[in-house]
Design a protein around this nucleic acid. Structure first.
Lengths: 342, 342
DNA sequence: CTGAAAGCGCTTACAG
DNA sequence: CTGAAAGCGCTTACAG
């Protein structure tokens, strides 16, 4: 079996003087094999460096032990380097590790709906799709192809139609809004991204309810996620350069880099953070730890979310059902200088 | 074929009133099929949502259209969130996109040598291993298993033994050292990571040669990659708190976060950057763009590197040979405030 | 131009 | 306790 390619089960069988069936049984602990036989087979298998082919094995139950992760917000870009890197890298890394711990591998898929999608991409046993868009074609494709999947954050137009994690963006937003209010904010503006996903839409809705409960006109700005810190100037122009009586004394950005940009833009206008303006972010970026002042954020615990998503995906892949909606971990409020008036 | 699972080639054949062979031919444009037949088959296939199984297909040539990426420096951590996030995320994202563009999917593998490694992980057609360690067991495993792979950065103990990209860390280091010298630095210290990979070792060697060519004692500090910005204080303590005549007037950190930490620590000591101390990094982190002053870095073009690595891996997967060593893209010097004395 | 047959490397009833 | 046979879903000579 040295000749070409890797040794197969037949090579092992021949070398051990048994049938392929017995090799299979011995190596997988199935059926009943005499102890000595099993040991001999194992030895020889190790000796010739035999590894069962995942492909052949997968053919039986059409399962490869392969999961796929689609990070939807990354797709609007031609690069994997967007806004939100921090969150999504932690997500991808966490998912990958969680998968391996459970005996699965994780593929990183950009867009399974592209016409030239690799066959292997659709060979995944199950998908995880984070932050699907409204009527997301990825979810449509997966459901047509009968590939099991879980979505992290619902498709806003098809809530409850699929197995999904409810991120409770309302809960998240409330947590931060209450913190800001306790810290002294009277008038809070919100900045979301422009993607039509559950996170943006749910947060906006919460903000509207919050403002109207306080008899205020809600101030909500939508800025492309991809603008990153560059969003600071436009945000400041629209929220800070107007009449003083309309001006918010706190800005709550969903994405950390928007918040980082706001801090800089505010300071450029001579505003003190947090004295004149508090700034906070829902999904922290690294910049929020290193800026002056440091910026209050929520830790969304993406690794935890990834783990839960992997668990759910595997249960689906293995043919079990999963009750939905599932819950993401509680967020943690990270209070920092930008909202601490002392 | 609605009953259970996905439609197979047999279902299509039956529905089209032809044999599976003909379906296969029609769909793959092989053999000769009458035009009308082919069209009818295609129609029906689309109608029933037929997609050939990547697994069954892979069984023929034992190729799945699957690549695997191991980012070695990530493995020393229990998290995918290390130092160097910027570089490695760009690498992973770039590799993933490049693979899809070429009809392959990309798995993110933590460690294929772990005893419970998923079978699917070893089903990859080829591996890309970035920054292998000295005598890296991952390379050993892959070569024993006869899984083709390319390494980005040589295994320092086995240079030339495998298909590898030469990162020319010497070239990189020289580029930065010369820039610093031109900018006015008289005494440059280097800070590397502690992993025993080609990048760290090669850079150190270059630094030693550079210093001795100038009759100086080389000052090189090894600090764990994982310390991130926290490395700033220890670095400053060892390099800046000594006698003034031994004190470097420029610190060149391989990793961007070390550099970020150094800037802060230097400023805490009342040193002006760049007036009293220049700071530069070989692999930029985001912090280097947002700090004050901004920090000079090299852009290593990880996406480009990823693309080249994917190309090479695919050539190997498809049974071709690749001449080695391969070259990574030229680095670009990004001059910023931290090395600009005006 | 079309299809029956063999085979890719395994696993899994089933018979001995 | 062991093994021959069938089958997973395709592709690929090869015969008709």
């Amino acid at each position: 079996m040295q000749r070409s390619g890797k040794p197969t089960i037949k090579d092992v069988a021949r070398a051990a003087g048994v049938s392929p069936t017995t090799v299979s049984h011995a190596l997988n602990g199935k059926g009943t094999v005499r102890r000595e036989t099993a040991e001999r087979v194992e030895q020889i298998a190790a000796q010739v460096g035999y590894r069962p082919s995942a492909i052949a094995r997968g053919l039986q139950n059409s399962r490869l032990g392969l999961l796929a992760l689609v990070i939807r917000p990354l797709h609007s870009l031609d690069t994997f380097l967007p806004e939100g890197v921090d969150y999504f890298l932690r997500m991808a890394g966490g998912a990958s590790l969680a998968a391996m711990d459970r005996g699965y591998s994780m593929m990183l898929i950009d867009d399974p709906t592209r016409p030239d999608v690799p066959f292997s991409a659709l060979a995944a046993d199950a998908y995880i799709v984070t932050e699907p868009f409204e009527n997301d074609p990825v979810l449509t494709l997966l459901s047509e192809q009968r590939i099991p999947f879980v979505s992290v954050g619902a498709d806003p137009a098809r809530r409850g139609a699929f197995v999904e994690f409810d991120e409770s963006s309302e809960q998240q937003a409330i947590t931060m809004l209450e913190h800001l209010a306790h810290a002294g904010a009277q008038r809070i503006a919100m900045v979301t991204g422009t993607d039509r996903n559950d996170w943006n839409l749910g947060s906006q809705e919460t903000m509207r309810a919050w403002a109207s409960a306080r008899g205020q006109r809600p101030q909500i700005l939508e800025i492309p996620e991809t603008d990153g810190e560059g969003a600071g100037e436009p945000i400041a122009r629209r929220l800070l350069d107007g009449h003083a009586d309309e001006r918010p004394d706190a800005i709550f950005c969903l994405t950390g880099r928007h918040a980082a940009g706001v801090v800089t833009a505010a300071q450029r206008r001579g505003l003190q953070v947090p004295a004149d303006l508090m700034v906070a972010a829902a999904s922290g970026a690294m910049q929020n730890l290193t800026s002056r002042p440091t910026v209050t954020t929520l830790d969304l615990h993406p690794e935890e979310t990834a783990k839960l998503a992997v668990d759910a995906a595997i249960r689906l892949a293995e043919g079990h059902t999963v009750s939905t909606p599932l819950s993401t971990p509680e967020v943690t409020l990270q209070i920092r200088e930008s909202t601490t008036r002392s």
